[in-house]
């Protein structure tokens, strides 16, 4: 979930900005010139996918897709997620421009880490691939929740309960996102294995 404007302390905002700037710089260095358009199109696709609501029991949540970004783009997930969140902030005021650094770090850092950890398993067809994709999708959302909760608690101890609520709210979303990621990766592995680096 995006943290709204006005909530975080200047130190947390600055830390998020510096960390995201570093991650984005590394990400941009990893993107070859001929792949820049692919990152832009995938960022646009993740942006559109994040408008899709998936039903979870009586409620629904929108897709986040940070785990898929980590799997497909590695470090490139940082600039891709930064672009998506910038557009969401300007278009819809989801999150905001001043908290952009923190929100990008929250979503991209777990995605990049889990992307690297889970990627090798994608080469194994069947259970191994599905489990790794589920772990990456669910873990990236849960990681984003943990990061957002930490940002709140580092700002002000009084936000502790709000941070707990935020984290618990991420649990069902993480499970749903994990299933969608697993099914999506299975689809990509059949339809276009080279997109996952398999062929």
């Amino acid at each position: 979930m995006h943290i709204a404007e006005g909530v975080l302390s200047p130190i947390v905002l600055a830390s998020g900005g510096v960390l995201t700037a570093a991650g984005t710089a590394i990400g941009m260095r990893h993107i070859k010139e001929e792949h820049l358009m692919i990152v832009a199109l995938l960022a646009a696709a993740f942006f559109v996918a994040s408008l899709v609501h998936i039903p979870i029991g009586p409620a629904s949540a929108h897709l986040i897709m940070n785990g898929v970004a980590g799997l497909l783009l590695g470090w490139g997930a940082f600039p891709a997620i930064l672009m998506g969140l910038t557009l969401q902030a300007v278009f819809f005021q989801y999150g905001g421009l001043l908290v952009l650094g923190v929100n990008t770090w929250n979503m991209a850092a777990p995605a990049v880490l889990l992307g690297f950890l889970c990627r090798p398993w994608l080469a194994r067809p069947g259970k191994g691939r599905a489990t790794a994709a589920f772990a990456c999708g669910a873990g990236s959302v849960l990681g984003a929740g943990v990061m957002a909760a930490l940002a709140l608690v580092f700002t002000e101890e009084g936000f502790l309960r709000a941070a707990q609520v935020l984290l618990v709210a991420h649990l069902p979303v993480a499970v749903a996102e994990g299933f969608v990621t697993a099914l999506l990766v299975q689809f990509l592995a059949h339809a276009r294995p080279e997109a996952l680096g398999l062929s």
């Binding site: 995938l42 996918a49 899709v52 897709l63 969608v180 697993a182 099914l183 276009r192 997109a195």
Partner: peptide, 14 residues
């Protein structure tokens, strides 16, 4: 169904 639709979207993007 939703995962396949998102997958098709990603392939079209590529």
């Amino acid at each position: 169904t939703l995962a396949t639709m998102v997958g098709v979207l990603l392939l079209r993007a590529l």
